[in-house]
């Protein structure tokens, strides 16, 4: 029994250290206390709402979020805007629809069922507008980067003057946390760039945290129910295991053998 546990933990250790090994080679990421980590981790609603504001006022001018719909903003476990608020948000976007009965495409205000409107028509248009670099879609961005939320959070605050031995082309910036340290996105945040409705001071650090929280939710919209269900499932399994253990002991007491 003991050996079994030992082997399990060794294997799990090896597996997990393997998958993290690439991230470990790079610089230490900035840390902050994420409310959504841990057994009971939940999103901070206010932070998600502020994060949406940062996304929509800053990021959305270049980065799409094509797998999200406006209805998601009002769904439980997310920013939980009221339905009226989400409807208003959707209606503030122009959506291309059609063709109508005349065969023409037309624009109309967005509805809850619409996907987030994309900043560019297509990848080529996005590249053309950004010096050849494609601003990645942000729907699952935190899951698509080795360091996850810590990486995104650090990257947003990682802009520095390039060291003298690094030469940068036009439109390329130096970032401490970027792979290869060169990034085509100019520092997107500066203190006071957005004005939070709830009066929170919009420092770069605060905005980074809020928008990263929002991105975590957009990548894992069911994170809260996953954590809740996981806790119940594991508690249930542990209780059942204990009961089965005692039944097993009872049954095996009929034969002279150890279990």
């Amino acid at each position: 029994m003991k050996n079994l546990f030992k082997l399990f933990s060794i294997i799990i250790l090896i597996i997990t250290s393997n998958s993290n090994s690439f991230a470990a080679e790079k610089v230490e990421y900035l840390k902050t206390d994420w409310s959504f980590k841990g057994l009971f981790g939940k999103f901070d609603r206010a932070s998600l709402q502020r994060g949406y504001q940062v996304y929509t006022e800053v990021c959305a001018s270049c980065h799409s979020m094509k797998y999200l719909s406006y209805r998601n903003l009002a769904e439980p476990g997310g920013p939980e805007f009221s339905e009226a608020q989400a409807k208003a948000i959707a209606a503030s976007f122009e959506v291309t629809d059609g063709p109508n009965s005349d065969g023409e495409m037309f624009t109309r205000p967005g509805k809850l069922s619409d996907k987030f409107v994309m900043p560019y028509e297509n990848v080529k248009a996005a590249q053309a507008a950004n010096g050849g670099a494609y601003p990645p879609d942000m729907s699952v961005l935190v899951k698509a980067r080795g360091g996850g939320v810590d990486y995104i959070y650090s990257l947003l605050q990682g802009y520095e003057e390039a060291p003298s031995n690094v030469s940068l082309d036009d439109g390329v910036y130096y970032n401490k946390y970027m792979y290869g340290n060169k990034i085509r996105m100019a520092a997107p945040l500066s203190d006071g760039l957005v004005e939070y409705g709830d009066g929170t001071n919009a420092t770069v650090e605060q905005m980074s945290k809020d928008v990263t929280t929002f991105l975590m939710w957009s990548a894992e919209p069911h994170l809260e129910s996953r954590h809740q269900m996981g806790f119940k499932a594991i508690v249930y399994l542990i209780i059942l295991t204990v009961l089965v253990y005692f039944s097993m002991k009872r049954i095996w007491s009929r034969v002279e053998s150890e279990v």
Binding site: H227, G230, L237
Partner: peptide
């Protein structure tokens, strides 16, 4: 299954 559940949920 407890180990399995840990990976799936957390």
């Amino acid at each position: 299954m407890i180990v399995f559940a840990f990976f799936v949920f957390y």
